[in-house]
């Protein structure tokens, strides 16, 4: 780095920078990298073959499939909801807007266990709607619909929380201009709003997806833990661990970790590929 009087006056001394970087890296290494490596090390302790056998085991495959099904339903649902909510909150003025924002945040402040219990209280046999649903032969909790509902609830705010500040910052002038020029509501949304928010939206969806696949507490309450049927990957990891089946437990955990890594890589790749565009929309 060239010695520049203004720059050095404006920046911290070199030792401070190094110290900060070292601290950050140590933290990352200790709390992120090391556990991640440990997961893979444990999973591969008995070799690649044992790892593979653990993954293609019937219940493990069922858990992976179920996790993907839950995410595939919950994430798009929250995508639609998130866009609609942030559109409504940032482009319009109405009474009770703050209340709505607070409500959107609710799943973040409520413990996931409570989120699960809400559904047991609603759809359980001794709950509000349970007896009716049972008589109709509809199973919500202790089945896939309950898992999806609980996941939607806990991942509710991710997309909206990502979009609201972005859209607030962008304001509604462009939309107003589009309307003045004769665009319809849909046209305005597709041609003006969506291109402006797509990166924030993508980021929100990725976060939402990561949480949807990794959620433990809420789904644990509504799952009923029927092996091969209502165990998502995080629940299956716990079961395997409790059965002294450590290689399998860590093997499934490593798949979860890999799904998270893929998500991250996808995000980075998109940012790299469309970096310029991203910067342009962010600093509008």
């Amino acid at each position: 780095m060239p010695a520049n009087a203004t720059a050095s006056a404006l920046s911290d001394p070199a030792w401070m920078r190094r110290l900060l970087i070292a601290t950050a890296l140590t933290f990352l290494g200790l709390f992120l990298l090391l556990p991640l490596v440990a997961v893979f090390a444990e999973a591969l302790r008995r070799g690649v073959f044992a790892y593979w056998v653990a993954l293609v085991e019937e219940d493990a495959l069922a858990a992976i499939k179920l996790t993907l099904i839950v995410a595939v339903i919950a994430v798009p649902a929250n995508l639609v909801f998130g866009v609609a909510a942030s559109w409504c909150v940032t482009k319009f003025d109405f009474r009770g807007k703050n209340l709505l924002i607070t409500l959107i945040d609710l799943p973040f402040s409520v413990s996931p266990v409570i989120s699960g219990l809400i559904y047991v209280l609603l759809f359980g046999l001794s709950g509000l709607l349970g007896p009716y649903l049972k008589s109709e032969g509809i199973q919500i909790i202790f089945a896939v619909p309950g898992l999806v509902l609980a996941t939607i609830f806990v991942t509710f705010p991710f997309v909206a929380r990502e979009l609201i500040p972005l859209m607030q910052e962008q304001g509604s002038e462009e939309e107003e201009a589009a309307l003045v020029l004769g665009a319809s509501g849909w046209q305005t949304f597709w041609r003006v709003t969506l291109p402006n928010i797509k990166w924030g939206l993508l980021y929100g969806v990725l976060l939402c997806n990561a949480r949807a696949m990794g959620e433990f507490g809420a789904v644990s309450v509504v799952s009923g833990h029927i092996r091969g049927y209502t165990n998502t990957m995080p629940l299956h990891v716990e079961i395997l661990y409790n059965e002294y089946n450590f290689v399998a437990a860590f093997a499934v955990a490593s798949v979860l970790a890999m799904l998270a890594l893929v998500t991250l890589v996808a995000k980075t790749a998109l940012e790299w590929r469309f970096g310029a565009e991203l910067a342009a929309t962010r600093h509008k």
Binding site: G124, K134, Q139, F142, G224, R227, I239
Partner: peptide, 20 residues
């Protein structure tokens, strides 16, 4: 045969709540 395991009291609770 599907299996579900957990603390006995907790399991009874789940059955009462509609675990089939």
């Amino acid at each position: 045969v599907k299996q579900s395991h957990g603390g006995s009291g907790k399991q009874a609770r789940s059955v009462i709540d509609g675990l089939d």
